[in-house]
Design a protein around this nucleic acid. Structure first.
Lengths: 158, 158
DNA sequence: GCTATTTAGGTTGTGTGCAATATAATTGTG
DNA sequence: CACAATTATATTGCACACAACCTAAATAGC
């Protein structure tokens, strides 16, 4: 009683990669109302999440570098440099060379960037409440995603 | 004994959206060796997956439309039109207006597009074998992603 | 001290995503 | 049948992603 899967292995709905891709884009779409209100894009929001976190952790400013952002967000300079410049122009972050090592660009939070945090928090709290999926299933999914991520890039995040 | 989560709710690693986003991009990165060999991009691969499937299902050619591709892949014409034009230029798909309704663009598989299928199948079989995650956890993850997707877009796919 | 290498960012080019808009063909309505 | 509304696709513009390349600054040997 062997099932013939040879003809449907490549069916779109069987692809985990497609489920990930579609789900990720759907999630970003779900954030659009908030992002529109904050006047930022989704990757810009991720940058702010990290900067807010570093701010609260009291991370030394000398470690707020473009490469540190890139390592955590898994984005390269070709993405981050223009993105950060746009955020600088909007007054959300600051950018300056580090005196001790002129190769390094230090990124900082401005008042404008900090001011968006409470709004984001409020939005997130509200949206999570509206999502009809139990929190424990969300965190289980979260855990599985990180395990898969570790498997996909053996080097892992730094 | 209440935990103070107010300061870390927005921590990057707590965000399901970021896990999805990072995992989806890591998965696409994992496909790059195959995609490079096939000479296509990741969304172009998704288009081919769907066309191969329609081909095997014997779907009537009058239903191989841009909007049908868009509905299944959740992509709009602004993404698909230029993408399909590039694929047409590479000889992977055909594009022509439908005689019965000149508003519709019918998309077809060419010999070139069909020829990539066995290579893709071989790659996928090999890659799945190398992934050190049990198949049942992958399918459980797959299921959870679709449930979340349904929740994120109540209208659902058509 | 001086060159080779490494490191950190920046630049360029191609290909998505997606909102907003445009256009042309078709359909519905009186 | 005229004409408004709808439908299917295309176009435009902006912002990522990311590969490939470039440049300048710092470091390592010698």
């Amino acid at each position: 009683m062997e099932e013939d899967t040879s003809r449907s292995d490549l069916a779109l709905d069987r692809q985990l990669c497609f489920a990930l891709y579609a789900c990720s884009r759907a999630m970003i779409r779900a954030y659009q109302p908030m992002l529109r209100e904050l006047g930022i894009t989704y990757p810009q929001y991720l940058v702010l999440l990290l900067l807010w976190q570093w701010d609260q952790d009291g991370r030394p400013v000398s470690e707020w570098t473009v490469s540190a952002l890139g390592a955590r967000l898994m984005l390269d300079s070709g993405t981050l440099t223009p993105l950060l410049k746009r955020m600088e122009k909007q007054g959300l972050v600051s950018r300056r060379r580090w005196e001790s090592d002129e190769r390094v660009t230090l990124v900082g939070l401005t008042e404008g960037g900090l001011a968006l945090r409470p709004k984001a928090q409020a939005w997130r709290d509200r949206a999570l409440g509206e999502l009809a999926v139990p929190a424990e299933r969300l965190s289980a999914l979260h855990r599985e995603l990180w395990l898969l991520l570790d498997e996909l890039q053996p080097d892992g995040k730094i």
